[in-house]
Amino acid sequence: MSFTLYDYALSGNCYKIRLFANILNIDYERIAVEFYPGADHRSEKMLAISPAGTLPILTTDDIVLSETSAMLFWIARNYDAPDHWWPEQDLTAQANILQWMGFSSDLTATIGQGRLHALFQTPIDKDKMIKGGRAALRKIEAHLSEQSFDGCSFLTGNKPTIADIACFPYVALSPDVGANIGFDHDDYPAIRNWIYAMKSLDGFIPMPGIYAMHELKDHEIDYGSQKSAKAGASK
């Protein structure tokens, strides 16, 4: 059974669902909703579908979901995604995933709000947003560093899960919120490594602000690759 996604191209939350569906190669119906300037997600018509008044919305004949974490879980289970996305038999992994799914809403509340403000001048408490966003980035940076000590590239292990999908967009989009507020990735090497790992996944798709690594037409000229050069830290 396929689903319908009420979608907005610039939304990091909507992108979570588009990204995961593309990675799993799922066909679904997409209905674009004008979030700005129309605020159509809060129109009577949309509130009748989902009283939450937020995007995205995922619907089937049986279900209406307005939380991306629930959507990612439902998609993983319903489409029988490879086990690493939601490790069926591994309670510890599931608990860790839920932990980071919870954290993903802190990202929406800080970096996500900051980005809405940067794009559409929506009113926010700027100091609170900046402090909260920095704290969130530092928290995920510290965790990803610790993961690397265990040889793991993702939030809960060496394979990605729905927790990585849930946290990825607003971490990747943080530099768009503004300069000199501690949201650039220059100070976060573990985040950079993780973003690179996410962008390397089969089925990765970009969104405005999150470009693909090989988006530019690949044009490689061998200007002399000095075979004697130190191999460096190649992975």
């Binding site: 220059d186 090497p189 950079r192 690179y196 460096g232 830290a233 190649s234 992975k235």
Partner: peptide, 15 residues
């Protein structure tokens, strides 16, 4: 300016 492991082959950073 960085740990070597944080700049694998094919990668760019600012310092």
């Amino acid at each position: 300016v960085a740990l070597s492991k944080d700049l694998p082959n094919g990668r760019v950073m600012r310092a």
